[in-house]
């Protein structure tokens, strides 16, 4: 009981700056809207109606919401890329690319302890992640490429219905992929990958919060995480 009653001191660390939090929730919201409207567009519900077509425009409205949200998603992503060069250590692009030896060590550690659920014999302070661990940040890198796939295929399919120059930048995509049908299929498949990502992402947030109790889930609202005092004293940003 003696060791157990030794409780730890925690410090509050601002990990996620306000732009990161705004990006996160705007991104989450637009992904949800895009998935829901996307599935409605892919397979609209059967409606028996005696209304004249001229009295109704709901499917057109659903498509309009999808397209408007796509612009929000795109602009938000561009803003986040900007912040990857301007933001703090945890928002920087370097936090997402495992190119250092340290990051690979962290990946091995997280795989062992959090994915395969083995226990460490001795607690190593350095292993406590303050921002993302490198497995998580790598999954966001994958999500970033998935977002690129959605933006390119989506705006590529949208281009012929638009006269604006921005969608026209993507007009080459369907030709490159062999037509609208394969482009649409890729767009549809990567929607499912977004759903799978969301499942895993939300689960792992809950897992970390449940196991560690450091404010993992609320950090994306408040911006703060709680980190052991000793960990901060020796901090070299990981």
């Amino acid at each position: 009981m003696q060791t157990i009653s030794q409780t730890h001191d925690f410090k509050r660390v601002l990990v996620w700056e306000l732009p990161v939090r705004i990006f996160h929730w705007l991104n989450a919201l637009s992904i949800i809207v895009l998935i829901i409207t996307g599935f409605i567009i892919a397979n609209p519900p059967a409606i028996l109606s005696s209304a004249e077509a001229s009295d109704s425009y709901w499917f057109g409205t659903v498509r309009a919401i999808h397209f408007i949200t796509a612009y929000v998603f795109l602009v938000n992503a561009i803003a986040r890329i900007y912040w990857a060069f301007r933001g703090n250590y945890y928002a920087n692009w370097r936090a997402f690319v495992p190119y250092t030896k340290k990051s690979w060590k962290n990946i091995m550690h997280v795989m062992k302890v959090d994915i395969f659920l083995r226990n460490e014999e001795k607690e190593v302070l350095k292993n406590i992640s303050v921002g993302h661990n490198y497995v998580a940040s790598f999954s966001y890198l994958i999500l970033f490429f998935l977002a690129l796939v959605q933006i390119f295929t989506g705006f590529g399919l949208y281009a012929p219905t638009s006269g604006w120059w921005l969608p026209q930048l993507f007009a080459w995509v369907p030709d490159f992929l062999g037509g609208d049908v394969p482009t649409r299929l890729i767009h549809h498949i990567s929607t499912w990958l977004f759903i799978i990502f969301t499942l895993i992402h939300v689960y792992l947030v809950f897992y970390h919060d449940w196991l560690e109790g450091r404010g993992e889930s609320s950090s994306m609202i408040s911006g703060y995480k709680f980190v052991r005092k000793e960990r901060i004293e020796k901090d070299d940003h990981i």
Binding site: I47, A51, G60
Partner: peptide, 22 residues
């Protein structure tokens, strides 16, 4: 070949109104 068949289809209003044959 500049436009999709969909864009010049006379049934397009039914599409926008969400009225589909099942």
């Amino acid at each position: 070949y500049g436009k999709r068949v969909h864009d010049t289809c006379y049934r397009r209003p039914y599409f926008d109104a969400g009225l589909f044959a099942e």
